[in-house]
Computed example of a mutant assay.
Amino acid sequence: MAWLALDEGYEVSLVEGRVAVRRPAGRQLKTVPKALRDHPEVDRLRRLAEWLDRHEAACAAQVDGWMVSSLPVPTALLARVWRDEAWQAALRDLAVVGDGDPDEVGFLRDATDAGELKVVNLDGETVRLSPRTVTLPHPVLLPDLDDVREFAAELDITQRVEQIHRATWTRPEDVKESATEVRDYAGGKFPSRFSLAARATGLGYRVSGGYATCRVRDGGRAVEAAVWIGEPYWEDESETGALSWHDEEGRAVRLGEVGPVAWSEGMRMAAALYAGRKIEEGGNA
Results as ranks from 00 to 15, higher is better:
187 G>S: 06
70 S>L: 02
15 V>F: 05
110 D>P: 00
107 F>V: 02
31 T>A: 11
20 A>R: 11
250 G>M: 11
62 Q>T: 07
212 A>W: 02
35 A>S: 15
278 K>T: 12
160 R>C: 07
158 T>R: 15
119 V>Y: 05
143 P>G: 08
126 T>K: 14
245 W>R: 03
67 M>F: 04
149 R>Y: 07
101 D>H: 15
138 H>L: 07
25 A>R: 15
161 V>D: 02
131 P>M: 07
211 Y>R: 13
191 P>W: 08
71 L>M: 13
13 S>P: 04
124 G>I: 08
51 W>G: 03
208 S>E: 14
18 R>E: 11
163 Q>Y: 02
187 G>Y: 07
260 P>M: 08
93 D>Q: 14
26 G>N: 12
161 V>W: 02
93 D>C: 12
162 E>H: 10
74 P>L: 05
153 A>H: 13
194 F>S: 13
14 L>W: 00
12 V>D: 01
225 A>N: 02
140 V>Y: 03
259 G>H: 09
54 R>T: 08
241 G>F: 00
124 G>C: 11
247 D>P: 08
140 V>P: 01
228 W>K: 09
232 P>S: 12
26 G>Q: 12
74 P>I: 06
242 A>H: 09
81 V>R: 12
222 A>N: 13
180 T>D: 04
87 W>T: 04
261 V>S: 05
